[in-house]
Design a protein around this nucleic acid. Structure first.
Lengths: 252, 252
DNA sequence: CCCGTTCTTGCACGTTTTTGCGTGTTACTT
DNA sequence: AAGTAACACGCAAAAACGTGCAAGAACGGG
């Protein structure tokens, strides 16, 4: 393995998993920990990673945040993401919301799948630049830092000019009575605008969000085609949603 | 085996496997490592591969590209970036172009500097999410993968709705007669639109771009306020530009 | 056809870079 | 406070590199 290749591998690992453990990488690649440490030191000097005791972290806390949040429920998110990615038909267009679950969907899109992805998340757009066949369209506007997506009037207006077959929406709360909810009013409006531009809207929600509600309503259940979740299909809340006419797609 | 044949083989290998190990190729083809090294040196000079210790890597993938291009002239880029970042006044708004140099500028913005950054690069928007005081605005549109920025009609239109104090533009060619040039027509149009929305336009160009020209003109020198570069201020080309009324800001 | 020129190629040699290990130091943990 | 893990530094061996050089092939003019 070439030295430059190793560095690429480290950056890739950092981007995908959100962290690097020097010891593990050394064992994986069959090289000494010293080499890994030297590489990390160089990468840190170039501002490409942040050196920490035992390994390295991404430079941007936002990305660290992604890593951390992914660490909370990586299995659930991955399962949900792979089911969602499988729903994207070749040649179709999909509106992809922001958030860690949607990011996982973007990464789960098969390399050979040609499709158009419309997103208001710069992070997701960046992640998809590597995808050989995806056409990417970014909805512009002011960037909301806590969620790393564009929101507000300009973004909503930009959304009016697109339309898609499918909208995959992430939310913070999924509740039979409250509907889909989120923690920010502007975000809720943006998600509403996104959903309105697609023929079908599916909600991505790992199990810990089921049965919870946040302050701002995004959509009532009438406007939702289905729910993709890793929660138990026999869960009581899930049953209630099914009774409301929501298609339930169980991940795993 | 003919020399040209060998070069084809190398490029093919690079495209298929993503890397070239000088030693292995020499053994496979039954030629000396010196010949392989010479070929790789020539190919790298033509921009067809990226020379690394032990062999070569491709130049194309976006992420690899970032690493590679930064590896070429990290010092120059960093110097230019820090001068450019120092030009952003507190409370002002700045239009930031795409590219590795602009990315370096984004990273060089001091944490305590409150400003508005308008960009058509999802990568730069992502990098700025962790900046505590920067307001970020993304110009939406179709994403051009080879340069990782939004371009085209929608992006140009989005640019009409913003205005800024300063525009920092990256280009591929800086030539006294040809003006500022770039390798893609859509990109050129986008850069032109960006420049038109700012009171002042400064060009970011590390020394290797000085005196070179690409196919598509972005701007004539009349529309450029200044040039930020790490090239020698007494360089002949730089002198010509100064005579054209371009303000020269020497980095280092 | 012959001879001088140019270009390519492989080898030798000295230089630079990388790498793993040993040593002592520092940082984190319990 | 003691113990362990991670780290930095120096070192030496190995690998890769660049350069100069000579042998040989390709080429062109006479």
């Amino acid at each position: 393995m070439l030295a430059a290749e190793r560095r690429e591998h480290l950056l890739d690992l950092l981007a995908r998993t959100g962290k690097i453990v020097a010891k593990d990488v050394a064992a994986d690649l069959g090289i000494s920990e010293d080499s890994v440490r030297r590489d990390l030191r160089d990468l840190a000097a170039e501002g490409l990673c942040q050196r920490v005791y035992g390994g390295a972290l991404p430079v941007s806390p936002a990305v660290v945040d992604y890593g951390a949040r992914q660490a909370v429920g990586p299995d659930g998110k991955r399962k949900v993401a792979s089911v969602a990615a499988a729903m994207v038909r070749p040649g179709s267009s999909v509106i992809l919301d922001g958030g860690t679950t949607a990011l996982a969907v973007a990464r789960a899109l098969p390399k050979e799948l040609a499709c158009t992805v419309i997103t208001h998340s710069p992070t997701i757009a960046t992640a998809l630049i590597d995808h050989p066949r995806a056409e990417i369209f970014v909805l512009g506007g002011r960037v909301f830092k806590h969620s790393a997506v564009t929101c507000g009037a300009a973004a909503v207006e930009a959304a009016q000019n697109v339309s898609a077959d499918l909208c995959l929406l992430g939310v913070t709360g999924v509740h039979p009575e409250a509907g889909l909810t989120t923690a920010d009013a502007d975000e809720a409006a943006m998600k509403r605008a996104l959903s309105a531009r697609a023929a079908d809207t599916y909600v991505l929600a790992s199990s810990e969000k089921i049965g919870t509600a946040s302050p701002y309503r995004v959509l009532p259940w009438e406007d939702v085609t289905g729910l993709i979740t890793d929660a138990d299909p026999r869960d009581m809340v899930i049953d209630q949603l099914r009774a409301l006419g929501v298609e339930i797609l169980a991940a795993q």
